[in-house]
Design a protein around this nucleic acid. Sequence first.
RNA 1: CGGGGAUUGGCGCAAUUGGCUAGCGUGCAUGGUUUGGGACCAUGAGGUUGCAGGUUCGAAUCCUGUAUCCCCGACCA
Length: 560
Amino acid sequence: MRYSQLFGKTSKTVTKDAIVASHRLLLQAGFIRQLSAGRYTFLPLGLKVCKKIENIIRQEVEKTGAQELIVPTLHPLELWQQANRDKKFGSAMMCVTDRNKAQFTLGATAEVIMLDLVKQFAPSYKDLPINIYQFSQKFRDETRPSGGLLRTREFVMKDGYSFHVDEADLKITYQKYWDAYLSIAQKLDLKVIVVESDNGAIGGAVSHEFMVESKAGEDTIVVCSCGYAANLEKATFVKEENNSSEALKPLEQVEAVRGTTMEDGVKLHQKPLWQQIKDVVFVDETGRFILAIIRGDYMVNETKLKNLVGANELRHASDEEIRVTLHSEPGFISPVKLEGALIVADDSLLKLVNAYGGSNQKNLDLINVNINRDYQPNIIGDIAEAENNYLCSKCQKEKLKLIKAVEFGNIFNIGYTYSDPMDGNFVDKDGSLKKMYMGSYGIGIGRAMAIDVEIHHDDTGIIWPKNIAPYQVHLIGLDGLGEDLYQELLLKNIDVLFDDRDISAGAKFADADLIGIPIRLVISKRSQEKGGIEYKLRSEKESEIIEAKDLVSKIIKFYN
RNA sequence: CGGGGAUUGGCGCAAUUGGCUAGCGUGCAUGGUUUGGGACCAUGAGGUUGCAGGUUCGAAUCCUGUAUCCCCGACCA
């Protein structure tokens, strides 16, 4: 490709809105263009990178036995409703209506469509496992897209789905996908950390996310030097016992003229924060009130809480709701004698005696509050959020570390989440109908591209890993030279971008650095005087002169 | 959804106690001089200042509404 013919060009300036490096560089180097919030055009350079990423994914994913197909973008809303998915995904779904008033949703993910498709072939145990995937545009009405391609409302995703006779069979495919994802990451020159994670809107029991550490990441993951790694929404830690050997003291109500924060309680009672009971009231999508209680120095993780109580969405209760519905008082909430709310206790409270906190009345506190004596939670479980330096629950020795990361891909063990409501059955050996066990597997292409730029760039531009660079070679011709070499490289099937513009050398070098193609060649009077062509890797500072006859083999060698 | 900021030639910005023909950089076009790290000179094209309404002799500037975009927060009672 001649640069002079390439649609899209680099620019010296870029909107101040582009904060993260990948966003800025991809815009500046002419790979993408924004259309509206969270929706980007992929220009020819950007699309070339996408296609290369897709091909790597295709190659690796097919090793799991997956077969490529494609389903329509518009999904009948009815199918989603069958599986109750419309509620799970909720407002992130984009819906449209056709001329017959039939309702559709723009595909955000395709579990229900793929299951419906598989059902149409009345699969038997002999047909299973079925392992299918597609590359297609996904639509999610994200509340806040951000970071350029890192979080968008419209994106191409490789989404794979597998159907099995049982969980044991799924685990074989699950592992194959796991391996495939590691290979893909390796080819994209990305170091991934595999973490356990919450299944979120996809549903099911177990899942793993393939994360890449990055400051631009909006996810926090928890890692331990022992190898433990988990999403913040799943991470567990050791909850130390501080005073569990103490004798239980009688419950007392005391006067407490104080403010409404945890800190006010600590000051007034002169007792440690961890001994205080933290009370947080939530309301779920059905209007149910939930009181989450936890040791004072811990935080409630809403996702953990959601999973424990089986809620889809939670919001904080208003002060008015706390007063009117629960007959309590903001800042003085207590699980003791509280009615009208499901009481969910973090298991940290089991190891805590003689706690203190509110009494559901203003300026009155309770001291020596003890679980299962003074109040009885409806549910006890883990709703606490891990923090830096908490003790790892796996090795029980090392301290946890929280790091920022971007989700590169994920694999889900979704079980019967869809087969159940949608009658996703297969015929077993004995002729009986059984439910298919499902898995699903996703990688976002644009995000993968952005992560790569995030990880591989310097002050002057992008440094593409060789497997996904838009071109293999960036040829710069100076002094009117280059045309012959360009033709020769084309003949040898080298994918080359030839900067044939009649502009200054400096401008060409700057653009080459920005665009980030791995090999830069310069042919000029100077290079010829030195006996050949200048060869420089984008990732290196130094260049070398290569004789013309050795050039092609050197390029080919680099790419193998 | 809440808070903050923004919207002016393709792109990045300036001009607001209301006042002359809305400037500058970059990019683009033409001509010339240049040519190893974003060259220089000259000439030129390109804007109903997001949209709608209002105030005024006069609005990019003030008022009202609205749309869009960006950032922070979606968290402790």
